[in-house]
Structures are given as C-alpha cells and as structure tokens.
C-alpha cells in the first residue's frame, strides 16, 4: 500500500460521505444522478465478489463493505425514502445507462485477464466505473448551475482516480510483475472524462463564481 493508493481510497471515501451528508442534511438529492449511483452499485458488487473468498487485509475488507453498503444506501434513499425521492430530477436524469452496462459487459467478455467468472466480472466493473460518471456529468450540464456539494462530489471522484493512476505508476516502477493494463486504460479514459469538468471547476474556483457548465 503506497501513499497514492491510500490518498485515492480516502478521497473515494470522501465522495461517498459527501453524498450521504448532502442527502442526510438537506433531505434532497436534486442534482444527483440516480443512474450514476446505480452504476456504482453494479461496479462495487461485480468487483467485490471475492469479499468472502479472497481475504487481502482488514482494511481492504472493511473498505469493500463500506463502499457496497453506502452505494446501496444512496440508491435506496433516492428510490425509496419518502422525502428524498421526491427531490430526484427524474425528467432530467435520462441518460440510457443500460447501454453503458451492456457495452462494459461486452468489452469484459472480449478483454479480460482470464476468461473466468470472477475475472470477467472484475473487468466489467473496471470498464463500467470508467463511464459510470457520464449520467451525472450530463445531468450537471443539463441543470446548468451546480450546487457546491455536487460539484465537490464530482471533483473528488476525479481526484480519487488521479491518485490511483499515480499509484499504478509508482507500483510499475517498484514492483517487477506489475501489469494492470485493463486498469491503466480504463483509468485513463475515466480521468479524461473528468478533464473538462476539472477545467470548468478550476475556472469557477479562480473567478470565485458559481460553477457553470456550458449546456
């Protein structure tokens, strides 16, 4: 475990806490894409299948449980909770995310480390995570102004992926058999998707203005 990896995991944890805080404190999920949250549930369930079979460390197992339960809790709030579900921008959040699921699964069948159930699910979760933010970014562009908690949420999600890329670079130079080409490619694509958001986030931060995304 290197500092980049730990920073990445902590940043990722922050994104989950930001959402839970926003939903709990404001009893509102306006500006949050339910589709992105549902994709994240699929990502974590598909990736953490080995939770009970492949023990890595207490930290690893605890974090897996935290990510799976929190992502399910967020989807539960947005779908079931009587107060929160009313604030969901149903008509704005129209990204057809099932295409992303189908595409990622197709890719995972073609490109994986081994053609086993676990490896295909793992590759599927990596590809799906790379594109999971799309419905959220589209929703932000549609709703134009971004409330700062949601903006911070997307910012930290991007930052977590940048830390992971630094982690892979570090491991590449320090470990002999380190090759995660699937993670490399998907991670770079994922971070690239955030690039324009980071740009507008930086501009709004510099001008101390409201974050405006071009429609």
């Amino acid at each position: 475990m290197n500092a980049f990896r730990l920073a990445g995991d902590m940043t990722h944890l922050i994104t989950v806490l930001i959402l839970l805080l926003k939903i709990y404190a404001t009893k509102s999920c306006s500006g949050i894409s339910l589709k992105t949250q549902e994709l994240y549930v699929m990502v974590f369930v598909a990736r953490y299948l080995d939770l009970f079979t492949n023990f890595i460390s207490v930290y690893n197992s605890v974090m897996k449980v935290v990510f799976v339960t929190s992502s399910i809790a967020i989807v539960w709030c947005m779908r079931i909770h009587p107060l929160v579900r009313r604030t969901y921008d149903k008509e704005q959040d129209t990204f057809r995310h099932y295409f992303l699921v189908a595409g990622s699964f197709g890719l995972a069948l073609l490109f994986n480390e081994n053609f086993t159930f676990r490896e295909v699910c793992w590759a599927f979760s990596i590809y799906l995570e790379a594109v999971a933010i799309l419905p959220q970014l589209v929703l932000l562009q549609r709703s134009g102004n971004v409330d700062n908690l949601t903006g911070q949420y997307v910012f930290f999600l991007g930052a977590y992926r940048v830390f992971y890329i630094l982690n892979w670079i570090y491991r590449y130079f320090t470990e002999k058999h380190f090759s995660r080409w699937i993670s490399w490619i998907a991670g770079l694509v994922q971070t690239a998707l955030y690039a324009d958001f980071f740009y507008y986030y930086f501009i709004s931060w510099k001008n101390n203005s409201k974050l405006q995304l071009p429609a």
């Binding site: 990896r5 990722h12 990736r47 690893n60 990510f67 793992w122």
Partner: peptide, 10 residues
C-alpha cells in the same frame, strides 16, 4: 512465487 496479489486494490 509471488503472493497472488490479484486485485489487491479497491
């Protein structure tokens, strides 16, 4: 042989 550290990341 190296420990099977497959997918030791989150």
């Amino acid at each position: 042989p190296e420990k099977d550290d497959k997918h030791d990341e989150l």
